[in-house]
Design a protein around this nucleic acid. Structure first.
Length: 448
RNA sequence: GAGGUAGUAGCUCAGUUGGUUAGAGCGUCGGAUUGUGGCUCCGAAGGUCGGGGGUUCAAAUCCCCUCUAUCUCCCCA
């Protein structure tokens, strides 16, 4: 019989416990922060009718989408983000949910693009969105959640870049470039990467006149403090009501963030960020790590006032953002910021004397009833070997008892770190035993 | 989708101008007179040299294709 080579698809990955523990920890942090702001969890299917997904992101996402015909002849697509499924979900259920509706959704998405550092074909997004309100409050709240989320993950070297599509659209309208908006925004978005010259060339290639190009550059090069940028923008775009509205909105958001205690250095008004997804209509966010800017945005999003309009006549504006779990994890790993703790349980119980197995399970139950994790070794190996296993896995405490101890109802509580052991009675009087155990565990957890 | 770089044990790598049974460290497993781990010592397992084809008496080594990783373009979390 020939063996099949075990392998995973390009851009798809397995996760070993050491990695998975980290991923779960990140997801837990995201959940905790989202819940703190009143967001509730939902889930949607990985597969949708193709028509639900196509034409919602951009041409690029259509091209990258995994799609096929199922056995029943239905055209089916795998979701490439969580926002489009949310739009469908909201259109379908909004009458049961009521507005405003705030949800979070942590789930994998799929994009058939070329894998690169921090870019995969299957990756998890941690989205949070607010549906059914155009109020600036939700714009502000979205930024606050992004900020708090990154801090709570343990990152403080980051910057949230904020822009407003209304400003960009306003600019393009005044320049009479509305039809070429996609090309212009795409070029502009690269300012960071290719510099002014590169952007200039690209604009020239799409047929933008020198005068128009000049104007775009003046715009893109606006820099400075939040207030300075906003002032310059409004001076430049006062003829555009749309842009003016967008600038005012940014001004409100900026002021509110400062009032909420977000340091000015953590966010920046950056008119050059555009975001590729066509559905954004208002404020947009992009978050980069200052220590690793090249890995790209780890948390971005924005306002999309028309998205659900494709599924329902009821107006359903929304705003939200998405934490790229896998990209962030790749970044943290690169920065050496991931602690490797793959301890399965806190308490180790060696199968010292297999004839006394029932005693070990009784002991384990007693411990677990306190909410303490315990593992009974599955094989009656030599005690030394069992302890070696416990040592390698990082157990804090071993509960050792052979026939001699068990006959007296006692157990040896061994602190794996200090290698010291004390004998305590546990049978019929667990209090003193549990106290002693907790004392060691409490100390061990503080140290580890 | 296009182009550049790379691919040798689970991991990090060595392997001389093509030349016998492809090596090391770490890790894994076992042992060091059978009731106590992290050190040390001994031993073992583990490799179709990413895969396929070609050149050659002979290929890990040279050529072609392919897969995978990584980088650039593109796009994005």
């Amino acid at each position: 019989m020939t063996l099949i080579e075990p392998r995973t698809l390009k851009g798809f990955r397995d996760f070993l416990p050491a990695k998975m523990v980290q991923r779960e920890k990140l997801m837990d942090t995201a959940k905790r922060v989202y819940r703190r702001y009143g967001f509730l969890p939902i889930d949607t299917p990985a597969l949708e009718y193709l028509e639900i997904l196509t034409g919602k992101g951009s041409e690029e996402t259509d091209r990258q989408m995994y799609h096929f015909t199922d056995a029943g002849g239905r055209a089916v697509g795998m979701r490439f983000d969580l926002t489009v499924p949310l739009a469908r979900f909201a259109a379908q259920h909004i009458n049961e949910l009521g507005t405003p509706f705030k949800r979070y959704h942590i789930a994998p998405v799929w994009r058939g693009e070329t894998p690169q550092d921090g870019r995969f074909r299957e990756f998890v997004q941690c989205d949070f969105d607010t549906i059914g309100t155009t109020g600036v409050v939700s714009d502000i709240e979205t930024a606050l959640v992004i900020h708090e989320l990154l801090l709570e993950i343990g990152i403080d070297q980051f910057r949230i870049r904020i822009n407003n599509r209304q400003i960009l659209t306003g600019l393009l309208e005044t320049l009479d470039l509305k039809d070429q908006s996609t090309a212009v925004l795409r070029a502009l978005d690269k300012l960071d990467k290719v510099g002014a010259q590169g952007v200039g060339k690209e604009l020239e290639q799409v047929g933008i006149s020198a005068a128009q190009s000049e104007k775009i550059f003046q715009f893109a090069q606006i820099q400075g403090s939040h207030d300075t940028v906003l002032a310059k923008l409004s001076a430049m775009l006062e003829s555009s009501p749309l842009a003016t509205q967008g600038i005012e909105r940014l001004s409100t958001v900026s002021g509110a963030l400062l009032a909420a205690g977000v340091p000015a250095s953590r966010f920046e008004i950056d008119v050059s960020i555009a975001r590729g997804l066509d559905y954004y209509t208002g404020i947009i966010f992009e978050t980069s790590l200052l220590e690793l800017p090249r890995i790209g945005s780890v948390c971005s999003g924005g306002r999309y006032d028309n998205l659900a309009g494709l599924f329902t006549k009821q107006p359903l504006p929304g705003i939200g953002a998405s934490l790229g779990l896998d990209r962030l994890l790749a970044a943290l790993e690169k920065l050496g910021r991931l602690e490797q703790t793959a301890r399965a349980a806190d308490v180790f119980i060696p199968l010292f004397d297999p004839d006394r197995m029932n005693d070990y399970f009784a002991l384990a139950s007693l411990v677990r009833a306190q909410g303490i994790s315990a593992e009974v070794y599955p094989e009656p190996k030599k005690l030394g070997q069992q302890l070696k296993y416990a040592d390698q896995r990082g157990f804090l405490v071993a509960l050792i008892a052979g026939a001699r101890e068990l006959d007296q109802g006692i157990v040896q509580i061994k602190d794996m770190r200090t290698q010291t052991a004390t004998e305590v009675v546990w049978r019929n009087q667990p209090e003193a035993f549990l106290d002693a155990l907790n004392a060691i565990l409490g100390l061990g957890k503080m140290l580890s």
